[in-house]
Structures are given as C-alpha cells and as structure tokens.
Design a protein around this nucleic acid. Structure first.
Lengths: 339, 339
DNA sequence: CTGAAAGCGCTTACAG
DNA sequence: CTGAAAGCGCTTACAG
C-alpha cells in the first residue's frame, strides 16, 4: 500500500491537515520544528501525494489539456509545427508544476467534456478551425487558449504570429525579385483565419507596389507534401505564366519544389518558391527553402505564460498578442528568367 | 455547478449506485427500464463523470503515462520517431478509453513518482537508456513498457524492431554494391542496446561474406542533423578510404549527405549512405535516402495492445515481441568508384 | 434488480 | 501554531 497523508501524520504525531500544510508550502501556518520533522518523514517514507484525491478535494487539477483535432483517419494532427508546440508546452508546464494531457478531439463537444471530466485548469486548442472554436460551449471560468486563431470567442483570446505581415513580406520579396505572376497556394480559406490574413497581406504587397494581381492565381490544396508534389508537377501546365509560388506552409512548399523538379523544372531558375513556418526540414532540402519564419519557441512561451496567468487570476483582462515574423532567405527564390 | 451522479440519481428516483452501474455499463445489474430512464436523464443534463472522483474510488486512472527523457536543455526529446509513436499511442489509447499523460522525465525517480501520484494504469517509456530502465524501482503491479529496449527489467518486456537484422541488411546491401570500407556512424554504445544490436548485425554481414572489417571504422556522434553535417564534411579527411556510411538514424544520415555535398563530394557517387528509421523526411531530400525501414505504426499498435492487455490481466505472462525490418532502397546507395 | 454505507486520500473553512 | 470534521464525487463489497 502506498504511503498516505494519514501515515505521515501518525508518524509525526500531528494532524493530517498540518502535514497537508507542510506539503503545500503553507509555511506560515506551521512552526519550523514541525515542518522539519514532517519533511524528514515525508522524505524517508517516500510519500507522494495522490493526484486524484488532491484534485477532487481542491476542485482543480493542475492539468492543462492540449487538445488537437483528429483527422479523418482518426490519428492526431501531428504536424511539425504542432509537435514543436506540444514539446515546448510540456516543458513550460512542467516548470510551473502543471501537467499535460494530450487528447485528440474528434467532435468539438469533447472539448467541454474533457474540461469537465478532468477539472482541467485550462486548455490549449491546437489547429482547430475558427468556426469550431466559435461554436464551443464552455464553462466560462476555464481559461482556453486557441493558438493561431482569429476566432472571436472571448475565451479564445490568444497568441498568434503576424500572418498579415507574413503574407506582405512574402509578396514584397517576390515582387522585389521581379516576379509578377505569383501563385498563392494554401488550404481553402474563408473571411477570417490564418490563411485569409496571409492572403490579404500577400495581395497588399501588390497594391502597395501598384501592380495588378490576377485573382485566378490561387491554388486550393491540402497542406501536405503530397499535394505540393502534385501541384508542382502540374504547375507549368496549369499556370504557364507563373514564375513564383507563395505556399502557406513549408511542408507544402517542399512538395512543390519536388514536383517542379520532377517535371523537369528547376528551382529557383524556373520557379521561385516561398514557404511559411521555418521548419527544420526546410534547411535540409535542395535548394534550401526561403520562408517566412516564426519563432515557435517564443510563441509557446508566451502562450504558456498567458494561459497560466489567466488561471492564477481569472478576472484579469486578457488581450491577444501578435508576434512578429521575418523573411528567412535561403535558396529557393531568385529572379524570373526572361520570357 | 456541474451535474453529479447524485443529481442524476435524485432526478431518476434511484440510488447513486444504480446510476453508477448504468454509466459503467454493468447492465446485468439493472433493469432495462431503469437503464433507459437514467440514460435519458444523463443525456439531457449533460452529465460527465468526474475523473478524479472515479480514479480515487476505483484506485485506477485509465491514464497511461508516456514518459520521455528530457534532454540537457530541459525540453522533451521529440524526435520524429517519438512523435510518430506518441501520435499513434494517443489514438490507440483513445480508442480503448484510456488517456495519455505526456511527461518529461529529468530524473529516473520521477517515473515511479508519476506512477504513484497519478495511479497510472501503465506507462510507456520512450527513449530511455537501458541502464536507466534497469535501475528503475517500481511497484510491481504497474505494467511498464519500454519501447526499443534491451533492458532486462522484467516489467520492461516490450516491443522492438529487429535491430540486429537491420544492421545485417544494411551491411549486406553495401557489401553487395561492392563497398569494403564502410563507416558505422551512431551514438556511443555499450554491450547491450539498440545500437549495439545494429552494430553486431552490421559486422555479421562482413563475417558472413568472409570480408574483414576494420575496427577503427566507427564514428561516435550524437543523433542529430548537425553532427551528421560535421561528420560528412570531415569524412574524406578522417576516413580517406571509406566509400560508404551506415548511419543508425535517418536524421543523422541526412546530415551526412549534406556534409559530404558541402565538402564537394557527391552521394552516392563518392559516398553511399544508408539511414535507419524511414522517416518521411528521407523521401524529401536529394538524393532520396536509402534506409532500413521499420513500421512505426505497427510497433505502436502492438505496444498499445500489449500494455493494455497487461493492465486487463496483470497475471498473464508477457513475452517481448520483435518486429521485422526491411531495406528501403532509394537513391543514396551506389557502387563505389574505381580507386 | 436495487440500496445504504463505508471509504478512496486529500483540502477547506472553521474554531480555538 | 494546530486540530476535528465535513466534504469533494465517485466505486465497491455487502446485504437483501
């Protein structure tokens, strides 16, 4: 049988509540002598508080749910971006005494279920659509943080990078190199959201430069390597005048480069490609990927802090934070060839 | 206030325990009429059982800890391999009604602490050294499963792929292409463990072929892209006669290819490279990486099943399972040039 | 088929 | 500075 508070209390000759106070660092309420004695016994007996009992009594869990939508194949959406976020989050939480419950969400209702069932202190929503977030029905006192979201749900006020600026920078870069026919490649988007922002920023670069941009130059594709390859292969046929592509994700951009190469083209000589994210992998491919870089570590650190602060002080007003992005020039962008 | 069992019981006019039985599917103990009535109320009120209370009373948690060592920089060891495992594990657990607690372990003692504190039903150890596993001091009744481990700890009987065979296949492949001076590149290894097995298998290929292999041809490096690059750059200088490298991880192999290329060499013309794992990324680099492929999905599925079976029947004897590996030939291996 | 009661291991006002 | 008691929301023998 595991050692309990009661065992410690008996051995120390004090009440259970005194031991509890020592364990929880309520030192002002206990004499130093008692603290020392109890701590020695705790140490000697290898006492470990039972999480369930503590959570039940305290009506909170010190657990943060990291909730990730599950794709059609029922497996977690573990993009390199999400992986970096989860890893960083685990670390930030551990440092502050919280734990991470990783949970795939097949139906949005499971979000509030998870929050209730686990007495979650908070939750990080990773990769949900803004519409899904807005449709969430949650107890108002549980801090939620949706990463990279433009949802208007008040609980979801969060952290994101400057997607509009990212699009703008990508547009400017390609325009500065002399490109005029540029394809925007990314997932289907609506009036709000990450992709919309990147698109608007991208288009603004053309307006700013006084250069017309063809509405038709948008390719709606899934954000995967494979669909990038497909697009790259057909690029010449479907968009004969295009000299550059702005892809909303590195993984997609890398696929596009591969597809273009497969079809006999060369990057950046025939087609320039700009990605988005700055994943490690972009540095491993040939040519190295030019991309819009966001600092995921920063983003996670800020998100963790914001979430835990909201838990400590639920009444404090929350304002979203937008982190900067920058252009990381490597080898996949050049000037267009003469026609 | 959240709805509790008692609320449901009151509304249904039955005892709390009857509701509990309905919730938990002990249908043989309740009449169909009662079941229906209770279920309707549960549905209408949006009742969600409290996990802490359930765990405390039942003395089990339905939580599986996925425990990953934290590196020197305190962040989780999220290699692509581990990521795939964690993603697959979450899914397998969710399908069977379990939850995943992701936890970085800085000190091996935290393993048993976590098990105790959370009443963990089981734990998956991911990326621990065999020595660490053998040194673990755990309550005997909590199933542990160490992936890819050769530890002798009885609780750690687990699942791994055939590392010896992997090394053997890599060796045979390179020998068949005509290579004789082959460098083995991987982390420092001892008498037991994954790397030792791959090494032994690799060397056995030479013995089998009746070809001598130079003991000096082992490069001890960390399993990272960067150290691969370093090794690749110095390859010609440090190992002038070497015509091929067998790296114990794809990420390392990819770095080596890049380093060789940086130094003006060409793969596979000047140097052939074989990796290990079959990560997605191996298909994106130039040339595409030839590698020893393991089916991580399979491995995780088997591991999840084994772990949950052990939880269901702790008395059942456990035997480790070794899954097959195969050679995946792509573009990074060729014949050595004439000297 | 159903229930009353004890108990899981903690924390939290409250009292002194 | 310390304690007795109630209670968190469940499950588990036990009894009928």
């Amino acid at each position: 049988m595991a050692v309990t508070l009661r065992d410690i209390a008996a051995e120390a000759g004090v009440s259970v509540m005194t031991v509890s106070n020592v364990i929880n660092g309520n030192r002002s309420r206990v004499s130093q002598t008692t603290i020392d004695r109890v701590q020695r016994i705790v140490e000697a007996r290898g006492y470990v508080p039972n999480v369930s009992a503590r959570n039940l009594a305290a009506r909170r869990s010190h657990v943060i749910g990291v909730l990730v939508p599950v794709a059609a194949d029922d497996s977690l959406l573990m993009s390199p971006h999400n992986v970096a976020v989860i890893g960083g989050m685990e670390r930030a939480l551990r440092e502050r005494g919280y734990h991470l419950l990783l949970r795939g969400i097949a139906d949005p209702r499971e979000v509030s279920e998870a929050v209730q069932a686990w007495d979650l202190d908070g939750a990080l929503l990773l990769g949900f659509l803004d519409e899904e977030i807005d449709a969430l029905d949650l107890p108002a006192d549980v801090p939620l943080l949706a990463l990279d979201s433009y949802a208007s749900h008040p609980l979801a006020t969060g952290v994101r990078t400057d997607d509009y600026q990212g699009g703008l920078l990508a547009g400017r870069l390609l325009l500065a190199c002399g490109h005029r026919e540029v394809l925007f490649a990314g997932p289907t988007f609506t009036d709000i959201g990450v992709v919309r922002q990147r698109f608007d920023g991208f288009r603004a670069a053309f307006v700013e430069a006084g250069i017309a941009w063809h509405d038709g130059l948008v390719a709606s594709v899934t954000t995967t390597h494979d669909s990038g390859v497909d697009l790259g292969r057909e690029l010449k046929a479907r968009y004969p005048d295009v000299t550059a592509v702005f892809a909303t994700a590195d993984i997609l951009a890398i696929g596009i480069i591969e597809g273009v190469t497969d079809a006999g083209g060369r990057v950046p000589r025939d087609v320039s490609v700009v990605g988005y994210d700055n994943l490690d992998i972009g540095a491993y491919v040939t040519p190295r990927l030019t991309t819009i870089a966001q600092d995921i570590g920063d983003k996670v650190a800020v998100a963790a802090r914001m979430l835990l602060d909201a838990i400590d002080d639920p009444a404090a007003p929350r304002t979203g934070i937008t982190l900067p992005v920058r252009v990381l020039e490597r080898g996949s962008v050049g000037s267009p060839r003469e026609a």
